[in-house]
Design a protein around this nucleic acid. Structure first.
Ligand SMILES: [Mn+2]
Ligand SMILES: [Mn+2]
Ligand SMILES: [Mn+2]
Ligand SMILES: [Mn+2]
Lengths: 227, 227
DNA sequence: GATAATTATTAGGCTCTCCTAAATAATTGA
DNA sequence: TCAATTATTTAGGAGAGCCTAATAATTATC
Protein backbone atom coordinates (compact mmCIF):
# COMPACT_ATOMS: atom_id res chain seq x y z
CA UNK A 1 0.00 0.00 0.00
CA UNK A 2 1.11 3.56 -0.59
CA UNK A 3 2.31 5.64 2.33
CA UNK A 4 0.35 8.17 4.30
CA UNK A 5 1.50 11.16 2.30
CA UNK A 6 0.65 9.61 -1.02
CA UNK A 7 -2.68 8.35 0.25
CA UNK A 8 -3.63 11.81 1.42
CA UNK A 9 -2.65 13.36 -1.91
CA UNK A 10 -4.62 10.84 -3.94
CA UNK A 11 -7.66 11.18 -1.74
CA UNK A 12 -7.49 14.97 -2.00
CA UNK A 13 -7.18 14.81 -5.78
CA UNK A 14 -10.16 12.51 -5.94
CA UNK A 15 -12.25 14.75 -3.75
CA UNK A 16 -11.29 17.94 -5.51
CA UNK A 17 -12.33 16.68 -8.87
CA UNK A 18 -15.48 15.11 -7.54
CA UNK A 19 -16.83 18.38 -6.27
CA UNK A 20 -15.24 20.74 -8.75
CA UNK A 21 -14.21 19.32 -12.05
CA UNK A 22 -10.44 19.47 -12.41
CA UNK A 23 -7.90 19.68 -9.63
CA UNK A 24 -5.59 22.68 -9.53
CA UNK A 25 -2.32 22.90 -7.68
CA UNK A 26 -3.41 25.69 -5.38
CA UNK A 27 -6.70 24.05 -4.51
CA UNK A 28 -4.87 20.86 -3.60
CA UNK A 29 -2.30 22.80 -1.63
CA UNK A 30 -5.00 24.43 0.45
CA UNK A 31 -6.83 21.21 1.09
CA UNK A 32 -3.64 19.50 2.17
CA UNK A 33 -2.25 22.42 4.13
CA UNK A 34 0.93 22.45 2.09
CA UNK A 35 2.67 25.08 -0.06
CA UNK A 36 1.76 24.95 -3.76
CA UNK A 37 5.40 24.51 -4.71
CA UNK A 38 5.52 21.34 -2.67
CA UNK A 39 2.43 20.02 -4.36
CA UNK A 40 4.00 20.49 -7.78
CA UNK A 41 6.93 18.39 -6.69
CA UNK A 42 4.75 15.63 -5.34
CA UNK A 43 2.56 15.57 -8.43
CA UNK A 44 5.61 14.84 -10.54
CA UNK A 45 6.45 12.00 -8.26
CA UNK A 46 2.94 10.60 -8.39
CA UNK A 47 2.98 10.90 -12.18
CA UNK A 48 6.25 8.97 -12.30
CA UNK A 49 4.50 6.21 -10.38
CA UNK A 50 1.55 6.28 -12.77
CA UNK A 51 -0.90 7.17 -10.06
CA UNK A 52 -1.76 10.45 -11.68
CA UNK A 53 -1.77 12.11 -15.09
CA UNK A 54 -0.08 15.43 -14.84
CA UNK A 55 0.96 18.04 -17.36
CA UNK A 56 2.59 21.26 -16.25
CA UNK A 57 0.20 24.14 -15.81
CA UNK A 58 -2.70 21.87 -16.77
CA UNK A 59 -3.78 20.22 -13.55
CA UNK A 60 -3.93 16.60 -12.43
CA UNK A 61 -6.21 13.63 -12.80
CA UNK A 62 -6.13 10.18 -11.31
CA UNK A 63 -5.14 7.11 -13.27
CA UNK A 64 -7.07 3.93 -12.61
CA UNK A 65 -4.39 2.82 -10.19
CA UNK A 66 -4.51 6.17 -8.43
CA UNK A 67 -8.29 6.17 -8.25
CA UNK A 68 -8.29 2.67 -6.81
CA UNK A 69 -6.06 3.80 -3.95
CA UNK A 70 -8.04 6.99 -3.40
CA UNK A 71 -11.27 5.04 -3.12
CA UNK A 72 -9.70 2.54 -0.83
CA UNK A 73 -8.53 5.29 1.49
CA UNK A 74 -11.94 6.89 1.34
CA UNK A 75 -13.54 3.57 2.18
CA UNK A 76 -11.35 3.11 5.23
CA UNK A 77 -11.92 6.68 6.28
CA UNK A 78 -15.67 6.39 6.18
CA UNK A 79 -15.78 2.95 7.71
CA UNK A 80 -13.63 4.25 10.51
CA UNK A 81 -15.97 7.21 11.03
CA UNK A 82 -18.99 4.91 11.12
CA UNK A 83 -17.21 2.67 13.56
CA UNK A 84 -16.11 5.46 15.84
CA UNK A 85 -19.59 6.91 15.87
CA UNK A 86 -21.63 3.72 16.16
CA UNK A 87 -19.48 1.49 18.28
CA UNK A 88 -17.54 3.95 20.41
CA UNK A 89 -20.18 6.63 20.51
CA UNK A 90 -17.97 9.46 19.30
CA UNK A 91 -20.05 12.48 18.22
CA UNK A 92 -20.17 13.14 14.48
CA UNK A 93 -18.15 16.32 14.75
CA UNK A 94 -15.17 14.42 16.17
CA UNK A 95 -14.96 11.36 13.97
CA UNK A 96 -13.30 13.02 11.01
CA UNK A 97 -10.00 13.95 12.62
CA UNK A 98 -9.61 10.50 14.09
CA UNK A 99 -10.48 8.80 10.82
CA UNK A 100 -7.91 10.95 9.03
CA UNK A 101 -5.31 8.83 10.84
CA UNK A 102 -7.15 5.51 10.95
CA UNK A 103 -7.52 5.48 7.18
CA UNK A 104 -3.77 4.91 6.84
CA UNK A 105 -3.55 2.18 9.39
CA UNK A 106 -6.42 -0.25 8.84
CA UNK A 107 -5.51 -3.48 7.10
CA UNK A 108 -7.84 -4.96 4.52
CA UNK A 109 -8.87 -7.63 6.93
CA UNK A 110 -9.58 -5.28 9.80
CA UNK A 111 -11.56 -2.97 7.53
CA UNK A 112 -13.60 -5.95 6.33
CA UNK A 113 -14.27 -7.03 9.91
CA UNK A 114 -15.34 -3.56 10.88
CA UNK A 115 -17.59 -3.48 7.85
CA UNK A 116 -19.22 -6.74 8.88
CA UNK A 117 -19.48 -5.77 12.55
CA UNK A 118 -21.38 -2.68 11.43
CA UNK A 119 -23.71 -4.63 9.17
CA UNK A 120 -22.21 -3.37 5.90
CA UNK A 121 -23.29 0.24 6.21
CA UNK A 122 -23.73 2.23 3.03
CA UNK A 123 -22.83 5.65 4.40
CA UNK A 124 -20.66 7.31 7.01
CA UNK A 125 -22.11 9.36 9.88
CA UNK A 126 -22.27 12.41 7.62
CA UNK A 127 -24.22 10.51 5.00
CA UNK A 128 -21.33 10.20 2.56
CA UNK A 129 -21.35 6.89 0.66
CA UNK A 130 -18.80 4.25 1.62
CA UNK A 131 -17.07 2.85 -1.47
CA UNK A 132 -17.20 -0.93 -1.70
CA UNK A 133 -14.07 -3.04 -1.34
CA UNK A 134 -14.14 -3.33 -5.14
CA UNK A 135 -14.08 0.43 -5.49
CA UNK A 136 -17.68 1.04 -6.49
CA UNK A 137 -19.29 4.23 -5.28
CA UNK A 138 -23.07 4.35 -5.35
CA UNK A 139 -24.20 7.38 -7.38
CA UNK A 140 -25.59 10.25 -5.35
CA UNK A 141 -29.25 11.11 -5.75
CA UNK A 142 -29.48 14.16 -3.55
CA UNK A 143 -29.71 17.92 -4.03
CA UNK A 144 -28.52 20.84 -1.96
CA UNK A 145 -31.15 22.04 0.48
CA UNK A 146 -30.58 25.47 -1.07
CA UNK A 147 -32.30 24.23 -4.23
CA UNK A 148 -35.46 23.05 -2.52
CA UNK A 149 -38.65 25.12 -3.01
CA UNK A 150 -40.74 26.46 -0.12
CA UNK A 151 -43.32 24.10 1.38
CA UNK A 152 -41.32 21.09 0.25
CA UNK A 153 -40.34 18.49 2.79
CA UNK A 154 -37.12 16.56 2.44
CA UNK A 155 -34.98 14.08 4.24
CA UNK A 156 -31.35 14.96 4.96
CA UNK A 157 -29.13 12.64 2.95
CA UNK A 158 -25.69 13.96 3.77
CA UNK A 159 -23.76 16.92 5.03
CA UNK A 160 -20.75 17.92 3.02
CA UNK A 161 -18.36 19.30 5.57
CA UNK A 162 -15.50 18.27 7.75
CA UNK A 163 -15.69 21.31 9.93
CA UNK A 164 -16.44 20.34 13.52
CA UNK A 165 -17.95 23.66 14.47
CA UNK A 166 -20.24 23.58 11.47
CA UNK A 167 -21.37 20.07 12.32
CA UNK A 168 -22.08 21.04 15.89
CA UNK A 169 -24.14 23.95 14.60
CA UNK A 170 -26.22 21.60 12.48
CA UNK A 171 -26.50 19.20 15.38
CA UNK A 172 -27.82 21.98 17.60
CA UNK A 173 -30.74 22.29 15.16
CA UNK A 174 -31.25 18.55 15.06
CA UNK A 175 -29.98 18.31 11.50
CA UNK A 176 -28.50 14.87 10.87
CA UNK A 177 -28.80 12.34 8.07
CA UNK A 178 -32.27 10.74 7.89
CA UNK A 179 -33.93 13.67 9.63
CA UNK A 180 -36.90 15.22 7.82
CA UNK A 181 -37.22 18.97 7.43
CA UNK A 182 -39.47 21.40 5.65
CA UNK A 183 -38.55 24.60 3.88
CA UNK A 184 -40.89 27.37 4.95
CA UNK A 185 -39.53 30.44 3.17
CA UNK A 186 -36.55 31.46 1.09
CA UNK A 187 -35.58 35.11 1.17
CA UNK A 188 -34.56 36.50 -2.22
CA UNK A 189 -31.09 37.73 -3.27
CA UNK A 190 -29.30 34.86 -1.60
CA UNK A 191 -31.04 35.50 1.66
CA UNK A 192 -31.66 32.99 4.42
CA UNK A 193 -34.02 30.04 4.40
CA UNK A 194 -36.39 29.33 7.22
CA UNK A 195 -36.82 25.65 7.84
CA UNK A 196 -38.70 23.49 10.27
CA UNK A 197 -36.86 20.59 11.86
CA UNK A 198 -38.69 18.36 14.33
CA UNK A 199 -41.16 21.03 15.28
CA UNK A 200 -38.60 23.82 15.60
CA UNK A 201 -38.03 26.65 13.13
CA UNK A 202 -34.62 27.96 12.19
CA UNK A 203 -33.21 30.52 9.79
CA UNK A 204 -30.06 29.40 8.02
CA UNK A 205 -27.81 31.06 5.46
CA UNK A 206 -27.52 30.08 1.80
CA UNK A 207 -23.97 28.90 2.38
CA UNK A 208 -25.16 26.49 5.03
CA UNK A 209 -28.00 25.25 2.84
CA UNK A 210 -25.52 24.55 0.05
CA UNK A 211 -23.72 22.02 2.20
CA UNK A 212 -26.78 20.11 3.33
CA UNK A 213 -27.90 17.58 0.74
CA UNK A 214 -31.43 16.30 0.84
CA UNK A 215 -33.93 14.07 -0.95
CA UNK A 216 -37.34 15.58 -1.55
CA UNK A 217 -40.11 13.52 0.05
CA UNK A 218 -43.00 15.93 -0.43
CA UNK A 219 -46.25 14.24 -1.42
CA UNK A 220 -46.53 14.49 -5.22
CA UNK A 221 -48.71 17.47 -6.10
CA UNK A 222 -51.84 16.86 -8.19
CA UNK A 223 -50.30 18.99 -10.91
CA UNK A 224 -47.12 21.01 -11.42
CA UNK A 225 -46.90 24.31 -9.62
CA UNK A 226 -48.73 26.92 -11.64
CA UNK A 227 -46.30 29.12 -13.62
CA UNK B 1 2.35 13.77 21.55
CA UNK B 2 5.66 12.50 20.23
CA UNK B 3 5.85 11.15 16.72
CA UNK B 4 5.79 7.54 15.64
CA UNK B 5 9.55 7.14 15.48
CA UNK B 6 10.11 8.55 18.93
CA UNK B 7 7.25 6.55 20.38
CA UNK B 8 8.69 3.33 19.00
CA UNK B 9 12.13 4.15 20.39
CA UNK B 10 10.82 4.93 23.86
CA UNK B 11 8.66 1.85 23.94
CA UNK B 12 11.60 -0.30 22.85
CA UNK B 13 13.85 1.23 25.50
CA UNK B 14 11.23 0.56 28.13
CA UNK B 15 10.78 -3.03 27.06
CA UNK B 16 14.47 -3.76 26.79
CA UNK B 17 15.17 -2.64 30.29
CA UNK B 18 12.12 -4.35 31.69
CA UNK B 19 13.23 -7.77 30.58
CA UNK B 20 16.96 -7.31 30.71
CA UNK B 21 18.26 -4.61 32.97
CA UNK B 22 19.92 -1.86 30.93
CA UNK B 23 19.35 -1.10 27.29
CA UNK B 24 22.30 -1.36 24.90
CA UNK B 25 22.55 0.26 21.51
CA UNK B 26 22.80 -2.99 19.59
CA UNK B 27 19.91 -4.59 21.42
CA UNK B 28 17.73 -1.61 20.65
CA UNK B 29 18.88 -1.60 17.05
CA UNK B 30 17.85 -5.21 16.64
CA UNK B 31 14.50 -4.72 18.25
CA UNK B 32 13.78 -1.70 16.07
CA UNK B 33 15.20 -3.16 12.88
CA UNK B 34 17.57 -0.24 12.49
CA UNK B 35 21.37 0.03 12.22
CA UNK B 36 23.17 0.62 15.54
CA UNK B 37 24.75 3.79 14.17
CA UNK B 38 21.30 5.23 13.58
CA UNK B 39 20.23 4.38 17.10
CA UNK B 40 23.18 6.28 18.55
CA UNK B 41 22.09 9.34 16.65
CA UNK B 42 18.51 9.10 17.80
CA UNK B 43 19.51 8.53 21.43
CA UNK B 44 21.38 11.81 21.39
CA UNK B 45 18.29 13.49 20.09
CA UNK B 46 16.07 11.90 22.72
CA UNK B 47 18.54 12.92 25.41
CA UNK B 48 18.43 16.50 24.14
CA UNK B 49 14.67 16.37 24.61
CA UNK B 50 15.06 14.96 28.12
CA UNK B 51 13.19 11.82 27.30
CA UNK B 52 16.18 9.66 27.99
CA UNK B 53 19.40 9.69 29.99
CA UNK B 54 22.25 8.73 27.77
CA UNK B 55 26.00 8.63 28.24
CA UNK B 56 28.24 7.42 25.46
CA UNK B 57 29.15 3.77 25.68
CA UNK B 58 27.02 3.42 28.83
CA UNK B 59 23.54 2.68 27.54
CA UNK B 60 20.24 4.49 27.93
CA UNK B 61 17.51 4.84 30.48
CA UNK B 62 14.19 6.59 30.40
CA UNK B 63 13.52 9.84 32.22
CA UNK B 64 10.15 10.22 33.88
CA UNK B 65 8.87 12.07 30.84
CA UNK B 66 10.18 9.33 28.56
CA UNK B 67 8.72 6.58 30.68
CA UNK B 68 5.36 8.29 30.71
CA UNK B 69 5.27 8.28 26.93
CA UNK B 70 6.51 4.71 26.70
CA UNK B 71 3.80 3.50 29.05
CA UNK B 72 1.18 5.46 27.21
CA UNK B 73 2.19 3.85 23.93
CA UNK B 74 2.23 0.45 25.57
CA UNK B 75 -1.23 1.09 26.97
CA UNK B 76 -2.60 1.98 23.55
CA UNK B 77 -0.88 -0.99 21.99
CA UNK B 78 -2.34 -3.45 24.42
CA UNK B 79 -5.77 -1.90 24.45
CA UNK B 80 -5.76 -2.06 20.68
CA UNK B 81 -4.77 -5.73 20.78
CA UNK B 82 -7.53 -6.52 23.23
CA UNK B 83 -9.98 -4.63 21.10
CA UNK B 84 -8.95 -6.28 17.87
CA UNK B 85 -9.14 -9.69 19.49
CA UNK B 86 -12.33 -9.30 21.51
CA UNK B 87 -14.46 -7.04 19.37
CA UNK B 88 -13.28 -7.84 15.86
CA UNK B 89 -12.33 -11.44 16.51
CA UNK B 90 -8.80 -11.20 15.18
CA UNK B 91 -6.69 -14.22 16.25
CA UNK B 92 -4.04 -13.53 18.86
CA UNK B 93 -1.19 -14.11 16.43
CA UNK B 94 -2.36 -11.25 14.22
CA UNK B 95 -3.16 -8.50 16.69
CA UNK B 96 0.39 -7.40 17.33
CA UNK B 97 1.24 -6.12 13.88
CA UNK B 98 -1.98 -4.16 13.66
CA UNK B 99 -1.54 -2.70 17.13
CA UNK B 100 1.97 -1.62 16.21
CA UNK B 101 0.29 0.99 14.00
CA UNK B 102 -2.81 1.69 16.08
CA UNK B 103 -0.70 2.65 19.08
CA UNK B 104 0.42 5.79 17.27
CA UNK B 105 -3.01 6.83 16.13
CA UNK B 106 -5.43 6.44 19.02
CA UNK B 107 -6.41 9.64 20.79
CA UNK B 108 -6.75 9.69 24.55
CA UNK B 109 -10.48 9.83 24.26
CA UNK B 110 -10.76 6.96 21.82
CA UNK B 111 -8.44 4.84 23.94
CA UNK B 112 -10.58 5.59 26.99
CA UNK B 113 -13.73 4.64 25.11
CA UNK B 114 -12.20 1.40 23.93
CA UNK B 115 -11.12 0.70 27.48
CA UNK B 116 -14.66 1.24 28.74
CA UNK B 117 -16.23 -0.74 25.89
CA UNK B 118 -14.02 -3.65 26.86
CA UNK B 119 -14.88 -3.39 30.54
CA UNK B 120 -11.48 -2.04 31.64
CA UNK B 121 -9.46 -5.16 30.92
CA UNK B 122 -6.28 -5.69 32.89
CA UNK B 123 -4.32 -7.59 30.25
CA UNK B 124 -3.91 -7.87 26.49
CA UNK B 125 -4.68 -11.11 24.61
CA UNK B 126 -1.18 -12.39 25.41
CA UNK B 127 -1.68 -11.80 29.11
CA UNK B 128 0.57 -8.73 29.26
CA UNK B 129 -0.67 -6.10 31.70
CA UNK B 130 -2.26 -2.95 30.32
CA UNK B 131 -0.82 0.16 31.99
CA UNK B 132 -3.44 2.46 33.43
CA UNK B 133 -4.08 5.90 31.96
CA UNK B 134 -2.04 7.27 34.89
CA UNK B 135 0.89 5.08 33.92
CA UNK B 136 0.65 2.43 36.63
CA UNK B 137 1.65 -1.08 35.69
CA UNK B 138 0.46 -3.86 37.98
CA UNK B 139 3.46 -5.90 39.17
CA UNK B 140 3.84 -9.32 37.61
CA UNK B 141 3.41 -12.36 39.83
CA UNK B 142 4.20 -15.11 37.38
CA UNK B 143 7.14 -17.43 36.68
CA UNK B 144 8.42 -19.04 33.51
CA UNK B 145 6.92 -22.45 32.92
CA UNK B 146 10.49 -23.67 32.63
CA UNK B 147 10.90 -23.14 36.37
CA UNK B 148 7.91 -25.22 37.37
CA UNK B 149 8.58 -28.63 39.00
CA UNK B 150 7.09 -31.87 37.70
CA UNK B 151 3.58 -32.76 38.90
CA UNK B 152 2.80 -29.11 39.47
CA UNK B 153 -0.26 -27.61 37.86
CA UNK B 154 -0.31 -24.01 36.79
CA UNK B 155 -2.42 -21.50 34.98
CA UNK B 156 -0.95 -19.66 31.99
CA UNK B 157 -0.63 -15.98 32.87
CA UNK B 158 1.04 -14.60 29.79
CA UNK B 159 3.09 -15.43 26.77
CA UNK B 160 6.07 -13.24 26.14
CA UNK B 161 6.38 -13.20 22.37
CA UNK B 162 5.33 -11.18 19.40
CA UNK B 163 6.15 -13.89 16.92
CA UNK B 164 3.05 -14.98 15.04
CA UNK B 165 4.34 -18.41 14.19
CA UNK B 166 5.26 -19.06 17.80
CA UNK B 167 1.83 -17.96 18.97
CA UNK B 168 0.14 -20.23 16.45
CA UNK B 169 2.28 -23.08 17.70
CA UNK B 170 1.13 -22.47 21.27
CA UNK B 171 -2.43 -22.10 20.07
CA UNK B 172 -2.22 -25.48 18.35
CA UNK B 173 -1.57 -26.99 21.77
CA UNK B 174 -4.37 -25.02 23.36
CA UNK B 175 -1.96 -22.82 25.29
CA UNK B 176 -3.54 -19.43 25.96
CA UNK B 177 -3.79 -17.19 29.00
CA UNK B 178 -6.04 -18.64 31.73
CA UNK B 179 -5.58 -22.21 30.52
CA UNK B 180 -4.42 -24.72 33.13
CA UNK B 181 -1.60 -27.14 32.42
CA UNK B 182 0.44 -29.69 34.30
CA UNK B 183 4.13 -30.46 34.04
CA UNK B 184 4.66 -34.19 33.76
CA UNK B 185 8.40 -34.52 33.27
CA UNK B 186 11.42 -32.35 32.67
CA UNK B 187 14.35 -33.93 30.88
CA UNK B 188 17.75 -33.00 32.33
CA UNK B 189 20.47 -30.93 30.60
CA UNK B 190 18.05 -28.39 29.24
CA UNK B 191 15.93 -31.07 27.68
CA UNK B 192 12.25 -30.85 26.83
CA UNK B 193 9.30 -30.72 29.20
CA UNK B 194 6.27 -32.87 28.79
CA UNK B 195 3.11 -31.12 29.75
CA UNK B 196 -0.56 -31.91 29.77
CA UNK B 197 -2.95 -29.32 28.43
CA UNK B 198 -6.68 -30.02 28.42
CA UNK B 199 -6.19 -33.75 28.37
CA UNK B 200 -3.48 -33.74 25.70
CA UNK B 201 0.23 -34.31 26.26
CA UNK B 202 2.94 -32.35 24.48
CA UNK B 203 6.71 -32.16 24.59
CA UNK B 204 8.07 -28.64 24.38
CA UNK B 205 11.59 -27.22 24.39
CA UNK B 206 13.17 -25.24 27.21
CA UNK B 207 13.22 -22.14 25.02
CA UNK B 208 9.49 -22.35 24.56
CA UNK B 209 8.91 -22.92 28.26
CA UNK B 210 10.96 -19.82 29.05
CA UNK B 211 8.48 -17.66 27.19
CA UNK B 212 5.34 -19.04 28.82
CA UNK B 213 4.67 -17.46 32.20
CA UNK B 214 2.44 -19.24 34.66
CA UNK B 215 1.05 -19.09 38.16
CA UNK B 216 1.30 -22.28 40.17
CA UNK B 217 -2.10 -23.52 41.31
CA UNK B 218 -1.09 -26.92 42.66
CA UNK B 219 -2.85 -27.90 45.88
CA UNK B 220 -0.51 -27.05 48.74
CA UNK B 221 1.43 -30.15 49.77
CA UNK B 222 1.14 -31.35 53.38
CA UNK B 223 4.85 -30.65 53.80
CA UNK B 224 7.70 -29.38 51.66
CA UNK B 225 9.15 -31.81 49.17
CA UNK B 226 11.64 -34.04 50.98
CA UNK B 227 15.23 -32.96 50.28
C1' DG C 1 -3.90 42.39 -28.27
C1' DA C 2 -1.03 44.44 -24.65
C1' DT C 3 -0.80 44.56 -19.79
C1' DA C 4 -1.99 43.23 -15.28
C1' DA C 5 -3.32 39.77 -12.10
C1' DT C 6 -3.39 35.09 -10.99
C1' DT C 7 -1.64 30.53 -10.87
C1' DA C 8 1.97 27.26 -11.27
C1' DT C 9 6.80 25.87 -11.65
C1' DT C 10 11.77 25.93 -10.78
C1' DA C 11 15.78 26.72 -7.83
C1' DG C 12 17.94 26.20 -3.77
C1' DG C 13 17.66 24.76 1.06
C1' DC C 14 16.17 22.60 5.45
C1' DT C 15 14.93 18.82 8.73
C1' DC C 16 14.21 14.01 9.73
C1' DT C 17 15.43 9.50 9.80
C1' DC C 18 17.89 6.23 7.98
C1' DC C 19 22.31 4.10 5.79
C1' DT C 20 27.46 2.29 5.19
C1' DA C 21 32.21 2.45 6.24
C1' DA C 22 35.75 3.70 9.23
C1' DA C 23 37.42 4.75 13.72
C1' DT C 24 37.52 4.11 18.58
C1' DA C 25 36.28 2.40 23.08
C1' DA C 26 35.16 -1.43 26.08
C1' DT C 27 35.36 -6.07 27.15
C1' DT C 28 37.13 -10.78 27.07
C1' DG C 29 40.28 -14.26 27.44
C1' DA C 30 45.06 -16.29 26.63
C1' DT D 1 48.99 -7.78 30.39
C1' DC D 2 48.02 -7.45 25.78
C1' DA D 3 45.77 -8.92 21.78
C1' DA D 4 41.53 -10.14 19.77
C1' DT D 5 36.77 -9.51 19.70
C1' DT D 6 32.72 -7.01 20.19
C1' DA D 7 30.08 -2.87 20.95
C1' DT D 8 29.54 1.78 20.03
C1' DT D 9 30.32 6.06 17.99
C1' DT D 10 31.76 9.32 14.27
C1' DA D 11 31.89 10.75 9.44
C1' DG D 12 29.78 11.38 5.36
C1' DG D 13 25.69 10.79 2.62
C1' DA D 14 20.91 9.61 0.75
C1' DG D 15 15.85 10.12 0.05
C1' DA D 16 11.33 12.04 1.57
C1' DG D 17 8.75 15.78 2.14
C1' DC D 18 8.48 20.22 3.16
C1' DC D 19 9.67 25.55 2.72
C1' DT D 20 10.63 30.45 0.56
C1' DA D 21 11.88 33.33 -3.24
C1' DA D 22 12.31 33.93 -7.95
C1' DT D 23 10.50 32.94 -12.54
C1' DA D 24 7.32 31.48 -16.05
C1' DA D 25 2.83 30.41 -17.99
C1' DT D 26 -1.99 31.29 -18.16
C1' DT D 27 -6.05 34.03 -17.74
C1' DA D 28 -8.50 38.24 -17.17
C1' DT D 29 -8.98 43.15 -18.13
C1' DC D 30 -8.99 47.20 -20.64
MN1 LIG E 1 -5.20 11.12 6.26
MN1 LIG F 1 -17.43 11.77 6.85
MN1 LIG G 1 4.73 1.10 16.58
MN1 LIG H 1 0.50 -8.28 23.28
Amino acid sequence: MANKTIEDYLKAIYQVDVDQDGAGTTELAERLGIAPASVTGMLKKLAAQDLVTYTRYQGVGLTNAGRAIALDVLRRHRLAERYLADVLGLPWDRVHDEAEEWEHVLSDDVAARMDAALGWPSTDPHGEPIPSARGDVPPLADTPLARLRPRHTARVARVSSEDAEFLRYLGSMGIYPHVALTVLTIAPFGGPLTIEVSGQCHAIGQGVAERIFVVDISPLPAAEEPA
